[in-house]
Design a protein around this nucleic acid. Structure first.
Length: 412
RNA sequence: CGGGGAUUGGCGCAAUUGGCUAGCGUGCAUGGUUUGGGACCAUGAGGUUGCAGGUUCGAAUCCUGUAUCCCCGACCA
């Protein structure tokens, strides 16, 4: 992609209403643009990052048997009356034709349970797992912190259906491992911990995944030895590490990037969702649900992977793999070498953002590259050509090296 | 949802007790000089000051209403 043609521009001035580091850097870098409070447009750079996060999640969900579906954004309110959740104050309400009452779904238990019920009748149909990646709507009393707490946000939600609790427990552990795999691939595995969460009013057991970050909104209590934590809501009940029993828990700030619940039969009961077991007996279906928000995770990654110059994207989700800069492109030799390298990288299917702007000084291009945060920078300039090729520098390192234009295979 | 602050060219800001043609920076356009850490010169375009009323000879400025944004808190499948 040529930077000169990219929709979305960097800006020096900080948006006055950017309330957090992720909102500030993502807006300044041209990744997102706020529409209304808690609702964002994703520009090309931002959508590339979001899509990469989604695809990593998608691959890991597929690996554990998840089948991707897409459920609707809006649903009749009646389904919510069935579960008693129509009184939730985060629900967006709207009117359909003829005055029907509709809601914008803040989550999809009320949709997926009746949906599954249309196809599941026997123990032979269980277990099974479906997920979707879709935008959700929650009319938060107060949206804040950029992508961390919006009113419309992107969410992956996986639902599992089982014959009994034992099978639910088995799959619950599998999902835990899948989540760890996802955070590892997203570049935050080392700072994301499993947290024992409060059960809440309708789940007997749940966990959160918290990414440790000084800017985090949540406070958790971490056992550094076990890399396990418990959250504020249950610290009063349990003051020791759930794994080793240690009471040496460290108080740290964190951002919740995932949560998983054993729903048991709360929703299957509400919708009368039963199956026939081997003996022809009616049994209640056991359910689990597992959330992981790509948009929020994107914001969390910026919160914990940045420096004073800009974002430092992990390679796996960077919008492009290489940020190619041509300096002084009025010089024919520099221009032709830059264009040639750009073509070569594209032919080798390497994602490259090429700063081909003519009348922009070196300082501006470097500053923009640091702000955008692509992990690998390549510079072609008079100096680099005199030194034998192209200068290579990683975003998270200070040192640079000269690579020969003829031996780019090493880089690639 | 309670309390507080804010709203002025695209963005960030200024404008004294109500007083002259609403300024500055940045960005944008054109021309020129520049090109290794957000360069410089010149010229130019771009605003009925969120919106609706009101007070006044005169309103960005005062009053009322309203919308939106941000902060603190409460809330948070």
């Amino acid at each position: 992609m040529r930077y000169s043609q990219l929709f979305g521009k960097t800006t020096k001035s900080v948006p006055a209403d950017a309330d957090s580091i992720n909102a500030k850097l993502l807006t300044q870098g041209g990744f997102i643009q706020k529409e209304i409070s808690g609702v964002y447009n994703y520009l090309p750079l931002g959508l590339r990052v979001l899509t990469k996060i989604q695809n990593i999640i998608r691959e890991e969900m597929d690996k554990i048997g998840g089948q991707e579906i897409l459920m609707p954004t809006m649903t009749q309110e009646e389904s919510w009356v069935t579960t008693g959740r129509h009184t939730m104050d985060v629900l967006f309400h709207l009117k359909g034709q003829g005055g029907t009452n509709l809601v914008l779904n803040p989550t999809h238990e009320e949709v997926v349970t009746p949906l599954a019920q249309k196809y599941i009748f026997s123990y032979r149909d269980l277990p099974f797992y479906v997920y979707q990646i879709q935008n959700k709507f929650r009319n938060e009393a107060r949206a804040k912190s950029g992508l961390l707490r919006g009113r419309e946000f992107n969410m992956k939600d996986l639902y599992s259906f089982h014959t009994d609790e034992e099978d639910l427990n088995r799959y619950y552990e599998i999902v835990k491992q899948a989540y760890h795999a996802i955070y590892n691939r997203l570049g935050i595995g080392d700072i994301t911990v499993l947290t024992f969460a409060s059960g809440g009013s309708f789940s007997q057991y749940s966990h959160e995944f918290q990414t440790l970050c000084d800017n985090g909104e949540d406070t958790i209590y971490l056992c550094e030895k076990c890399k396990l934590a418990i959250n504020k809501e249950i610290i009063d009940v349990q003051k020791t590490c759930p794994e080793c029993g240690s009471d040496n828990l460290k108080t740290v700030k964190a951002i919740e990037v995932g949560n998983i619940f054993k729903l048991r039969n709360k929703y299957s009961k509400a919708f009368n969702f039963y199956y026939s077991d081997k003996n022809g007996q009616e049994k209640i279906v056991e359910m689990g649900c597992y959330g992981l928000g790509p948009s929020r995770t994107m914001g969390a990654i910026v919160e914990c992977r940045h420096d004073d110059k800009g974002i430092v994207w992990p390679t796996s989700i960077a919008p492009y793999q290489i940020h190619l800069i041509g300096l002084d492109l009025h010089d024919e030799k520099i221009k032709s070498q830059s264009e040639k390298l750009y073509q070569t990288l594209q032919e080798k299917n390497i994602e490259v953002l090429y700063d081909d702007r003519l009348d922009v000084t070196a300082g501006t291009k470097f500053a923009d590259a640091d702000l955008i945060g692509i992990p690998q920078r390549l510079v072609i300039s008079k100096r680099s050509l005199e030194n034998g090729g192209v200068e290579s520098k990683k975003r998270n390192e200070e040192k640079s090296e000269i690579l020969s234009l003829n031996s780019l295979d090493k880089l690639i």
